[in-house]
Nucleic acid binder design. Structure first.
Lengths: 197, 197
DNA sequence: ACCTGAACACCGTTCAAGT
DNA sequence: ACCTGAACACCGTTCAAGT
């Protein structure tokens, strides 16, 4: 049974948060679990597969509890939902050391971390945009959130001293950047020209 | 004299393009140069420093020849120049295997690849945007170009077979995504409402 | 100044063999 | 089914010693 997989992933999250992504090695994780590194290959085909599972776990933990059942249509306007998904994604990655680097890498290589993209696509499906443009918009939003949060976390972790005054600047920068992308999208989903005044 | 540094970087670009970023190791590069790996540490303090130099070389080679002297104000409207810088950045990274991964990583860690950011900031300085927003806009554009091109190059290199039909789809997707971000920026730099008609 | 030789402290992955 | 033991083919980096 794949019954120990969750335990291995949970330990891997601990190692990630404590020592960083560079020190999350198969040998170190094995040592932490009291097991030879080769034993891990009975549960995961490769290190990349393991990292994908860790990225998905980080995202799952950062997911706000939804009071609506899974197959209910989410409430709120499509753009409010886009902001919610992007904000949640950023916060999920910031919650663990090197979280942004891990999730962005796993996503870039197509191994996992696909949930935020699905959520964004679902929200944009209600925007009235044609499917091709909605796909472009989804990817553009993801690139923004990944890129911004990677920068933010790198700078945050670089100087633990100056982190106190960097945090608010970056926080508003996230909102401002997201606003830029979102307005560009909004401009394309009105069939009629925007109302003047 | 640092007279061999350019030779080392040139060889490193060859190794990158032939074998990929994962195989661009100090040991392999040393072997390619007929030298022990430890000899490289007389020219570069670390592998990261070397990679930064390689990234800057890739960007320099992709730079279109400018017929204007360095300290001349570039011609064209600010947004045309933004499109030019982003297009050139994408093409420079696509010109070498794993170019996007290399340049994006070096930039994220703040080790190099700073020229495109400077060029974008210079263009946006003429947009009438206030400096803080211009900084946000610069970073948002960079995140888009890095993220898009990383995706594009990964998919391009994954299937060499289907690359023929993927290329045009991605090419127009780049223009479309850039258009979204650029329109969001334009919306913020008009003090007066846009002229109707 | 530039490079060698040799070492240090690691990696991911495979696989026969044990239980 | 799950893990050990041992190996294979590598890493980045340091540093005394050579020329």
């Amino acid at each position: 049974m794949s019954y120990r997989r969750p335990d291995i992933v949970a330990r891997a999250v601990e190692v990630l948060d404590t020592y960083g992504l560079a020190d999350l090695t198969m040998r170190r994780l094995g040592g932490e679990l009291g097991v030879r590194p080769s034993a891990l290959y009975h549960h995961f085909a490769s290190k990349q597969t393991l990292l994908a599972a860790v990225a998905d776990e980080v995202l799952a933990r950062g997911r706000a509890p939804r009071d609506t059942p899974p197959d209910t249509v989410p409430d709120g306007s499509w753009d409010d939902r886009v902001v919610a998904v992007c904000t949640e994604l950023r916060e999920a990655m910031l919650a663990y050391r090197d979280g942004a680097e891990l999730v962005a890498t796993v996503h870039a290589f197509g191994l996992g971390a696909a949930a935020p993209g699905r959520d964004l696509a679902a929200a944009l499906a209600d925007s009235g945009l044609d499917p091709a443009l909605a796909g472009t918009a989804t990817r553009t939003l993801l690139h923004f959130v990944f890129g911004h949060t990677l920068d933010e976390q790198t700078h945050l972790q670089a100087g633990s001293a100056g982190a106190i005054e960097d945090q608010p600047r970056e926080r508003s920068d996230f909102a401002a950047g997201l606003g830029i992308v979102l307005d560009g999208i909004r401009l394309r989903c009105r069939v009629a020209p925007p109302p003047r005044g």
